[in-house]
Design a protein around this nucleic acid. Structure first.
Length: 900
RNA sequence: GGGGGCGUGGCGGAAUGGUAGACGCUGCGGAUUUAAAAUCCGUUGAUUGUAAAAGUCGUGCGGGUUCAAGUCCCGCCGCCCCCA
């Protein structure tokens, strides 16, 4: 019998045992075998999923945190009798592989597959209970076959199309990017390069067709964090208003979108985006030079620069005028960079009296300001403000409530959105007069899905001079990536240079045609992988509807907040499209979502902002720059190479083992919050596991017990006081831990409950009773999902103590196949309870009283207590409140004598 | 500017409106040891007091509701995130 806890030995042993005995294999359908398993949840499905990683080759702590959380959930569900699907795979296409090829000449496939092999080993060392038979890698033909097939489903549905557009061009990665992949400083999410605008012909997915459903169905997701839903709603950016057509002098129809069509009578000029296609026609010869210069300057500015509030407004008059359709007024047309071409129609009517940006612009260029909303009378009786009506006196736009004035048919109508208010009236008027119509506008743009790169799924399209754009027939899928490609990192996509691959016969007419050489955005690969896991090895179809509809939606999804918009929005979109195609029967892919916080570590930065690693600092208590001696700035930051603060998981596993790493990560912070790495706390968890180890080993070798068999002898009618106390601790732990895991995933408090139970066990004076055996057995079961290796080892130790004469070589009964413990309500009832005595709302002391006491008795105990007597001198009791739940008494004091 | 979140000991963090600080880390004191590591025991919000008994203050700030507020309401301040 092992007396020392040595994780290195037992962890490898159990990982092999679990794999050999297929403990983590997914049970496809409820069978008699698993229905016979204990627990009322038997046979119900549970799908636990972590966001699959990009196979960079190195596992980092963020991964460990993500996967540990999901693993605990999966393991608890298994013990509760659920059929659990808990898979893992690889988001394996993407630029780093190609960059490695350029730098080191290693083919992307080889580089990627090597990394996968390496990371798979690292994951296995963590003891994660994946069903590896369902592993997927998006870069393998048996996966991207179906990514291509889905692309053609979109194409067939009219949701995939090509258009020439001003797109985001990343000059470092030499490819286009979707809007979602450019941050608000105008930088690429991957390379960090300042994105340029380029006019190119590209493939798009019509996600805008689904804007309304993507927005509305957020209501179907009570299990999602509020902030993620808010972020998605903001990204979709629905706004209602009207489109109104202005005639320009040169005859063009200038369509504007406005959310406040009611202020149309206050429009005193128009502003058109510098990129607007009608700009040439609108610009007069005299203004041509100034406009051209302005357009060129605007092209170099990012969205954030152009729309920042408070920024000095710039703009140029085009030289021409347009007619305000509601009052026939001639108003000048300007161009300014604060109007963006990709929002609304790229042109606005400017109402300076009631829009701050228009106001700033009007002040700067001395354009007229015409108020059309008269502020409502101040509710607090202050004199009515006239400022909004006196143009010269206004110092800002008026955006408050009021009544419409100077607005023809709208005069007197209450200003605002809502029933029979001005916006609604204005739209009705515009529609009646055929001047415009009510519309809904979304900020969401169509998704740009083509990339000019090699390492991605080829878009399965053939361009034929006669037939046009022809989809590759299903039978010819997958369109495989050619091998032996030369990578230079310069010029056009590597695929376009592969003549053998590019030139094909048109599948329709047989004429000489060319393949599409763009590949798909890798976010397409990851927008459906969670569906494939349900039927990962299906070679005949993308997945069988039965299996997908059985396993999906995912019951619990866990991943980083950085995917709040990108991946989660795309996946929801895919699910809805596939549903509309009749391939599945659910609207939303992820029932519950947990966004885990970052893993941070102490970071040391020099005065110039550069980080340095702790190994080069002499005194970590008073860190100074080893070169200059200047004090270093100490903070917690996300672990990263550039911050020199990463802790490699392998290092922690080697020193303490996977169980300790898992326990630490779960205990240190609630899952949604950032976690600060601390070696001392890791040490603390290792100590805890050692204490559990010693307690169990001691139990297994104690004379006079019959091991776990003793539990059967538990006599509920004649328990000693000590046994009752131990059972209370045991069943409280079951209750709390079960609630922590089934509720809001409070793994940190669940672990602390394990510690409390362990403390109670260590403090128990008599370690030979049936109640003690029950505690030990329960502790190991409750520990099993968190620290699976040590739990299985200890379980074996006491099982063998139990069957000491049995053949040791026979298969052991894994802890992970045991039923999750059930709470014995009887055990939760204590003999004595703590009565808290409050006087005048302040706690003055506590009293141990029999648990059987009713309200009246509790009051008597409290009244007669020394505590109460002490405070009652010279006073009398006016009122008593007894709160049974937690058991509380409140005594009020009447007399006027001051107590203090 | 709009929306969301957060603010509790030396630190991470606990607290169905009912004993604030569970659990752990750190620190301090002690046991064990030739010594150390490991382990075990005690202690650890501030403050008055004899380290007794017993008090007072304390969850960012200011008000309010309540017998009772970290928790509910109103108004501020600060930090973080998203959108402008």
């Amino acid at each position: 019998m092992e007396l020392r806890y040595s994780p290195a030995e037992i962890e490898a042993k159990w990982q092999t045992y679990w794999a050999d005995n297929q403990l983590n294999k997914t049970t496809e359908k409820a069978t008699e075998e698993n229905l016979a398993g204990a627990g009322k949840k038997a046979g119900k499905k549970f799908y636990a999923l972590s966001m699959f990683p990009y196979p960079s080759g190195d596992l980092h702590m963020g991964h460990v945190r993500n996967y540990t959380i999901t693993d605990v959930v999966a393991r608890v569900r298994r013990m509760q009798g659920y059929r659990v699907l808990h898979p893992m795979g690889w988001d394996a296409f993407g630029l780093p592989a190609e960059n490695a090829a350029i730098k080191r000449g290693v083919p992307p496939a080889e580089w990627t597959l090597n990394n996968i092999a390496q990371m798979r080993q690292q994951l296995k060392a963590l003891g994660l209970s994946y069903d590896w038979d369902r592993e997927v890698a998006t870069c393998l033909p048996n996966y991207y076959h179906w990514t291509q097939w889905i692309f053609l489903q979109f194409f067939d549905a009219g949701l995939a199309y090509q258009k020439e557009a001003a797109v985001n061009w990343d000059p470092i990665d030499q490819t286009v990017l979707a809007n979602e992949q450019v941050d608000n400083e105008g930088r690429s999410w991957r390379s960090g390069a300042k994105v340029e605008r380029k006019l190119l012909r590209q493939w798009f997915f019509k996600i805008t067709d689904y804007a309304e459903r993507l927005l509305n169905d957020l209501d179907q997701l009570p299990g999602w964090p509020e902030r993620v839903k808010t972020m998605q709603a903001n990204w979709i950016g629905k706004s209602t208003g009207a489109q109104v057509t202005f005639k320009s002098e040169s005859g063009e129809d200038l369509v504007v979108f406005t959310t406040r069509p009611d202020t149309l009578w206050g429009a005193t000029f128009m502003v058109v985006s510098p990129e607007h296609p009608l700009m040439d026609g609108l610009t007069t010869a005299a203004q041509s030079e100034a406009v051209k210069a302005y357009q060129a300057a605007a092209a170099n500015l990012s969205t954030i620069d152009r729309t920042a509030e408070g920024r000095e407004k710039t703009g140029v008059w085009t030289g021409s005028y347009a007619i305000n359709p509601v009052n026939g007024e001639k108003i000048p047309v300007w161009t300014a960079d604060y109007v963006m071409m990709d929002y609304g129609t790229g042109a606005i009517m400017a109402v300076p009296a009631h829009d701050q940006r228009d106001f700033d612009f009007a002040r700067k260029f001395e354009l007229p300001i015409k108020p059309v909303i008269k502020p409502a009378k101040q509710p607090d009786g202050q004199p009515e403000s006239q400022s909004a009506l006196v143009e010269a006196g206004m110092d800002s736009a008026y955006v408050g409530p009021g009544v419409m004035v100077n607005s023809g048919p709208l005069d007197g109508v209450a200003a605002g959105k809502g029933e029979s208010q001005s916006v609604e009236s204005a739209i009705a008027y515009l529609e009646a007069q055929s001047l415009g119509q009510g519309t809904t506008n979304y900020r969401l743009r169509d998704w740009l899905v083509s990339r000019q790169r090699y390492w991605g799924a080829p878009i399965p399209i053939i361009h034929c001079p006669k037939c046009g754009t022809v989809p590759v027939p299903d039978a010819d899928l997958p369109v495989k990536l050619p091998e032996n490609v030369e990578f230079t990192g310069k010029g056009a996509s590597p695929l376009s240079k592969m003549a053998d691959w590019v030139n094909v016969a048109c599948p329709t007419c047989g004429a000489a045609a060319k393949r599409e050489t763009d590949t798909m955005d890798t976010f397409l690969d990851s927008s459906w992988y969670f569906l494939r896991y349900a039927d990962a090895n299906n070679d005949a179809a993308v997945f069988s509807p039965e299996r997908v509809n059985d396993w999906l939606p995912v019951d619990q999804y866990v991943g980083g907040i950085e995917h709040a918009i990108l991946h989660l929005l795309y996946s929801r979109f895919f699910t809805k499209v596939l549903r509309d195609r009749g391939l599945l029967n659910f609207d939303e892919p992820f029932q519950r979502l947990l966004t885990q916080g970052m893993v941070q570590a102490t970071t040391y930065r020099k005065p110039d902002g550069n980080a340095i690693g702790p190994e080069s600092i002499a005194d970590l208590e008073h860190p100074t720059d080893p070169e200059t001696g200047a004090p270093l700035k100490v903070s917690y930051e996300k672990m990263s190479k550039s911050a020199f603060n990463g802790v490699p998981p392998a290092q922690v596993l080697e020193k303490y083992g996977a169980d300790t790493a898992r326990m630490f990560i779960l205990f240190k912070a609630p899952p949604e919050k950032d976690l600060e790495w601390d070696d001392a706390d890791v040490e603390g968890q290792y100590r805890f596991l050692n204490r559990v180890w010693r307690a169990v080993i001691e139990f297994a070798s104690t004379e006079g017990t019959s091991g776990l068999g003793a539990i059967a002898n538990l006599d509920h009618t004649s328990l000693s006081k000590l046994d009752k106390a131990l059972r209370l601790a045991t069943h409280t732990a079951i209750k709390e831990i079960t609630e922590d895991i089934e509720g809001d995933y409070q793994f940190n408090t669940a672990v602390s409950e394990l510690m409390k139970l362990s403390n109670a066990i260590n403090e128990a004076p008599d370690k030979t009773t049936p109640a003690f055996a029950e505690s030990i057995s329960t502790l190991i079961k409750l520990l099993a999902p968190f620290a699976p290796h040590i739990a299985d080892e200890l379980w074996t130790q006491i099982s063998q103590a139990d069957i000491s004469q049995a053949d040791v070589s026979q298969a052991v009964n894994s802890i992970h196949q045991q039923a999750w413990p059930e709470v014995d309500a009887e055990a939760l009832v204590a003999d004595e309870i703590t009565l808290v005595i409050q006087i005048m709302g302040k706690t003055r002391g506590t009293l141990q009283v029999p648990a059987t006491a009713d309200k009246a008795e509790l009051e008597t105990y409290a009244r007669e207590s020394d505590i109460a007597q002490r405070h009652l001198e010279g006073k009398e009791i006016k009122k008593v409140i007894v709160v049974p739940g937690i058991l509380y008494v409140c005594i009020l004091i009447l007399s006027g004598i001051s107590t203090d």
